[in-house]
């Protein structure tokens, strides 16, 4: 409110006031410049937070159905108008979280790629991958199916090396 009063008062009084009376003192001018600069800084930080939040949301959707990746970013405490320091800490926390989530997702993608290659080899040569079991989760897909390399006809298959990959029917 005081800011608004300060801004609107000179326009009405300029014609009747003595020369120089409508000009705010240098310190007030500096304060207003500083206020404007801070507001611009806050606006810019809010834009950055919006962009980071969008990227985090996209990564969250990409990461599904993988579990255990942390996407939470602690709050600055509110609801209130955050100052520059608080907005910076929110932005930094979002950027850090985004970076960590990307690294974790990339690490998991590598593991899943390895598991997919293993699955292909296992299907091609089941007897080389005895008792190996790979689930949908291991290859980064939703559902509860799993592939299991096991002998046909139990003990007889083990002795005669008749191995095959059995695919489970899905979720119970």
């Amino acid at each position: 409110m005081p800011e608004l009063l300060q801004q609107s008062e000179p326009t009405g009084s300029r014609s009747t006031a003595p020369p120089g009376a409508g000009i705010p003192p240098a310190t007030a001018g500096r304060a207003r410049v500083s206020d404007d600069t801070e507001r611009l800084a806050r606006d810019d930080l809010r834009r950055q937070i919006g962009a980071l939040e969008r990227e985090l949301g996209e990564l969250f959707a990409t990461a599904f159905p993988r579990r255990g990746i942390e996407f939470g970013v602690p709050a600055a405490g509110g609801p209130r108008v955050l100052g520059i320091a608080d907005l910076e800490s929110v932005r930094d926390a979002l950027a850090t979280r985004l970076q960590k989530a990307r690294v974790e997702l990339s690490r998991r993608a590598d593991v899943e790629l390895g598991n997919r290659e293993l699955l292909e080899s296992m299907i091609a040569q089941p007897d080389r991958y005895r008792w190996v079991r790979i689930s949908n989760e291991d290859i980064g897909e939703p559902g509860c199916r799993h592939w299991h390399s096991r002998p046909r006809w139990g003990l007889l298959g083990m002795i005669l090396r008749w191995w095959r990959v059995k695919l489970s029917s899905g979720c119970p």
Binding site: I49, G57, G72, L87
Partner: peptide, 27 residues
């Protein structure tokens, strides 16, 4: 539900929550 954050309106609220110091994954 998973793609909710992608939609412009839910995203706008999430961003505003961040702007006012709320954690949209908590509140």
């Amino acid at each position: 539900a998973i793609n909710l954050r992608h939609r412009p309106i839910p995203w706008a609220y999430r961003v505003f929550y961040r702007h006012i110091g709320l954690d949209p994954d908590h509140t």
